[in-house]
Amino acid sequence: MKLIPTGSQTVGPYLHVGLTWLTTQDIAGTAGGRRIRISGRITDADGVAVPDALVEVWQANPQGKYAHPADKQDKPVDSAFKGWGRCPTDKDGVFEFTTLKPGAVPGPGNSLQAPHLAVTIFMRGQLKHLFTRMYFPDEAANADDPILNFVDDKARRDTLIARKDGEGRYSWDVVLQGRNETVFFDC
């Protein structure tokens, strides 16, 4: 039997009714380790802030292991760290998370992926969600990251890399369309 996956439809403007009960801006929770703060702003083709988006984050723990049975790596797990966050944007289009910096995780073949957050973005005006990633600016491993290297244009690749805003603070803006448009993935 082969079924067609159900079609995606927009979350619409009232997504908060059903989705903000699970808002999780503190991804670190009770897990041990040094906190980092990541914030950013989502803007549209006109540079206007998007106040009705929802951002979800999926990441590995600081040792580079995902809290999921498909990750069979022999690496330590802290059961308090789930690696998932959800944050609606505020009236200024801003989202913010507190988390632990992820470790490097295996990529295709023998490659290693630089520390990154997988980011999913939902909003009114998007019939299906957008997949992107956020990488860290102070990582030599970015140069060899197999996913970053799918983005040939250096300027475009840089849209996936956060800015350092101080000790343990990163900012990463998402531009939906136009100048400095963020790279989105088909995955």
Binding site: D44, A45, D46, V48, V50, W58, A60, Y66, A67, H68, A70, D71, K82, G83, W84, V105, P106, G107, P108, Q113, H116, A118, M123, R124, G125, Q126, L127, L130, R133, P146, I147, F150, V151, R156, L176, Q177, G178, E181, T182, V183, F184, F185, D186, C187
Partner: peptide, 23 residues
């Protein structure tokens, strides 16, 4: 969708451990 959809093509990537795990 007009002001909110990407204008550039999406970049196709393989599924890695990141994509096949989830919350």
């Amino acid at each position: 969708t007009v002001k909110r959809a990407p204008s550039q093509s999406l970049i196709k990537i393989p599924h890695t451990l990141t994509e096949v795990t989830g919350p």
